[in-house]
Amino acid sequence: MNKKTNRRKLFIYLFLILLAVVMVYPLVYLFFASFKPNDEIFGSASLLPKKWVLDSYKIGWRGSGQFTYGRFLLNTCRMVVPTVVFTVISSLWVGYGFARFDFPLKKFWFYVMIGTMMLPSTVIIIPRYILFKNLGWIDTYLPFIVPAVFAGYPFFVYMVIQFMRSIPRELDEAAKIDGCSSFRIWTDVMIPLCKPAIFSVIIFQSMWTWNDFFNSLVYINSVRKYPVSLALRMNLDSASRVEWNTILAMSLVCIIPCTVLFFVAQQYFVDGIVAGSIKG
């Protein structure tokens, strides 16, 4: 019996390790390939470079010639940071309203909000584009930031609501008895207690906005404003014969921030994804 379970365990571990290797190998390969000269990338199956070069980074960093990847990374930050900040504030604000107040039609609006999570973005993108164009927002980051101001990412509102519901009501009742206004309760009681949820919102929204491709493709036109996603695709398409080592090097540069964020704040990823999805 014991022998049998041991063999089973061993088999499971082998499977899990093999799967882990298959899952991560492409990313490890990306790392080493970015140090290979272009001709070594093709026709060699070995993981490690025979000759380590940094050319790919030097050439790749130049980007479009006119604008470097420094510019594209900065652009991405200018898009991501305000979007994330406003998403956090608006989600906490609106989430508080749904989690702690009773008001007419509350149930109705709550279900409307859940419903908008399922609304396909492709259906509304054309009128949104026209609207933003008329407002003069095309080729700016406002199409990302303004929806964040108005809690336009219902996933995060829902996440905050779920989290606030788990905070005992006695805490805000006590503050209320002490004469705190609902705004004070929000700033002094709820926000400090919501820290884990806030981290989750920051992490997910940073990552999603950083990686966004479709919206950038629609709203951002000029190379000067390109975030990294568009810059990478431009490099891929513009060269007649793709210099694969430079483009792999820049791909690596563009995923490093998300990778670091993931390893640093892993627990919040797990907590966030769970809080946002399981009905409590």
Binding site: M207, V228, I247, I255, C258, F262, F263
Partner: peptide, 19 residues
């Protein structure tokens, strides 16, 4: 868990599509 989850973090990016 970490290793299996990592691709979900990066998979939506243009960088990984290129890869």
């Amino acid at each position: 868990r970490t290793l299996y989850y990592l691709p979900s973090i990066l998979g939506g990016s243009v960088a990984v599509s290129i890869l």
